[in-house]
Design a binder for these strands. Structure first.
Lengths: 168, 168
DNA sequence: ATCAATCATGTGCGCAGCGCACATATTGTC
DNA sequence: GACAATATGTGCGCTGCGCACATGATTGAT
């Protein structure tokens, strides 16, 4: 019985990912982990190449080239960090604008899946999703990977627990 | 409020897609739409290159090359179809075995997300997913695209409605 | 204070997955 | 029988990414 539910979740998950991917490509003209990079850098903490790499789950060179593309598009700036072998990544104004557009488009793409549900059903659905996420045991790094496309304007209190012991 | 739910669904959807992708790459050593192709061809109806193309949402040449890879790996056979300009795609024995492994791995990858829920909650969750899917208006072609990674051993009665008028 | 190990970034190279433009073979239509 | 429509295959190039390697900055051990 659980497998039938898992299969349904597989369908919905695929549909969600497909829709997000479409929006991202329309907005950014790039695919892969590029949209996630824009969101992550957009938090404004000035992540290093290596921190970004871990969150996106890419190789180091892959991340360098990804940032190259974003810089070439004028969406990201490489700045000096305290540690002078590292860099600090920040969004340009245009990058921030596209990030907004991306996050808005993402929600707009997912929303139609929920509208057939009544308000009460949506609440129940949210509660179940919340419980699923809050039951995941993750490190800080894994949590950031899961939330790499999250809309921080909406998700004020992320339900996903993170073991604070784990290294960033 | 709906946006908060949509954001949560976005996270879970991404997690599901990530996990499915990992399993697929482990089993098949290929990414992209390749795993979906294996599942679709595995239904045994002997689809043509063009029918497969529409379901996967790829260009025609992209599909030809995708099938090339599957044939090179000994997973798929190109056979003559009634229409002699078309071909009919079938799985080899090894292809069918890998398809089983892929579908099993897919469910195994999704299942851990559901286990924190009680049986009653899982039932409620399934009912909500079912309602979401059954509310989608899709053509036959779109339905097949949505279900391109579905486990037909589990999903006997697909909830997604399809307009039978639409051309295959 | 120096020097080796470590860390972070960047580069040359190649591969996988896919699309565009084009070529070829078969089918249906008039 | 001529011709548009259909279905497959090919040459070519692009995007996204990993591996192996090189370079500069920092840390730690002596």
């Amino acid at each position: 019985m659980i497998d039938r539910t898992a299969n349904l979740l597989g369908v919905v998950g695929l549909a969600v990912a497909d829709r997000i991917g479409e929006v991202a490509r329309e907005v950014l003209q790039h695919g892969g982990e590029t949209p996630a990079a824009l969101v992550v850098i957009g938090y404004g903490s000035g992540p290093s190449n290596d921190q970004l790499r871990r969150i996106l789950g890419l190789s180091h060179p892959g991340t360098v080239r990804l940032v190259d593309r974003l810089v070439a598009d004028g969406l990201v700036e490489r700045r000096r960090a305290r540690d002078r072998r590292a860099i600090a990544l920040y969004l340009s104004e245009r990058g921030a604008a596209l990030r907004e557009e991306l996050l808005t488009g993402r929600l707009a793409a997912i929303r139609p899946l929920l509208t057939p549900l009544t308000s009460a059903e949506q609440e129940a659905f949210a509660a179940l999703l919340h419980k699923m996420l809050s039951s995941m045991e993750t490190t800080v790094s894994e949590r950031r990977t899961l939330c790499r496309l999250c809309d921080n304007r909406i998700c004020a209190d992320c339900p996903i627990p993170a073991d604070e012991q784990a290294k960033t």
